[in-house]
Design a protein around this nucleic acid. Structure first.
Lengths: 230, 230
DNA sequence: GTCGGACTATAACAGTTGATACACAACTGC
DNA sequence: GCAGTTGTGTATCAACTGTTATAGTCCGAC
């Protein structure tokens, strides 16, 4: 007894091989359901019963796999960070390296567009398109159990890279206060735009229009980036 | 019995004059406490007991004055809209009228700066500086009981006016899709920037710096506006 | 004074929440 | 087979939620 827990360094007993394949699948199902429901409702509003029902498991399975509701929430945050790192990590690190070495304004502009495009595509790839941003924005607004991990692994590095690129677009070598604030406004805009996307569609009168978030937001963001440093 | 309710047209019995002065004060205290706690925690997470404690009243007072938790929430939304209309309504209506008649790009730019400044100052004037935006942004993200009133009275008119002014800055007479999307991004940025302000301060390393939200955000927003139409 | 309505306090309700004790099933290695 | 681990299901707990019945206090009016 004791379940699989959060499995930080879970390679304790190597014997757990094929037998646990079904359990792994169940764990994944719970995690996916939790991401959806936490993303939509937030930590407090979401109930373990709703999650268990959506995952088609019974209530104690959550304790079994994640120890507690909070453990499940943290696992969701780690999952988001993981997808981010596997999806865009490599490119972002390489751009960050180039930025540290110094880029021309136009190269920095192109890099910033790349970063923004990767981020937007990542957001779009999440189930419901705006669940991850809701998750992250909520945690930045009212810091909860997952604040530290999301801030340190996602928010701060993302904003800092953006700030660095903005500074270089404007001809300054390193990120300063002004560039950081502009970056915060840009990221805030992206995040809020994503989370309020359903409302924005209504505002625009796109009741039937199946236009996706990416193809709507990306041109606007790129126009914004094009205006920088001019 | 039956309390004061939400008082839409509460002039039923004129006899309720000086006697109810104390009650009116209590009602206000509850409303202010609710704004603070709803703004910070959202509808679900906030509990009537927390609100009653913060307002230094007992639990049934909430039912007495606002009928229910939802009634109190709606009263909060109405209060926000009321402060907005009393504070900036007149100016905004006049600018909207000018915009409908048509403005030069530079006049539109100045008007947009005025609108943004009024909004930011209004946000700053709210207790805790970021409670109102939290309240509104949450409601736009996960529509709840107060969605309709906040969307119709605040969000949609605000974005539409901004879109109109952006269009005219860029030399087009009326708000089109592009202007609306840019306006949405701008408003999203403002709102998210405000709600995540405490985190942003941390990110900027301003642990002691007492710089206010207004004086930080306004120059960045104005720089953004200055870049439009160039 | 004392009556009546405006207001406040106590105590309790039914429902829901996160968590868990405990028994049961499934599967693997021997 | 069968022992032991891994995973699942049932039933229940204590805590907390929004709400409310009920009784009390205050205070001006007559």
């Amino acid at each position: 007894m004791q379940g699989r827990q959060v499995s930080t360094t879970d390679h304790s007993d190597i014997a757990a091989t094929a037998a646990s394949a079904r359990g792994e699948e169940t764990r994944d199902r719970i995690l996916r359901a939790a991401l959806t429901i936490f993303g939509k409702d937030g930590f407090e509003r979401a109930t373990t019963r709703k999650i268990a029902e959506a995952a088609e498991v019974n209530l104690p399975a959550i304790k079994y796999y994640f120890e507690s509701k909070e453990g499940l929430y943290l696992a969701c945050a780690r999952s988001i960070v993981g997808v981010y790192e596997r999806g865009v990590g490599e490119t972002v690190v390489s751009i960050a390296q180039q930025a540290v070495d110094g880029l021309s304004p136009e190269a920095a502009r192109a890099s910033l567009k790349t970063v923004v495009r990767l981020l937007v595509e990542l957001i779009e790839a999440s189930p419901g398109a705006n669940l991850w941003t809701g998750f992250v924005l909520r945690e930045m607004t009212v810091p909860g159990p997952a604040f530290e991990i999301l801030y340190n692994e996602l928010w701060a590095p993302g904003v800092e890279l953006t700030a660095m690129l903005i500074a270089q677009i404007e001809g300054r070598p390193v990120a300063d206060e002004d560039a950081r604030l502009t970056a915060l406004l840009l990221h805030g805009g992206m995040t809020a735009f994503s989370t309020t996307w359903p409302v924005s569609r209504k505002y625009l009168g796109w009741t039937e229009n199946p236009k996706r978030l990416t193809e709507t937001m990306l041109p606007i963001l790129e126009a914004q980036i094009d205006r920088l440093g001019r």
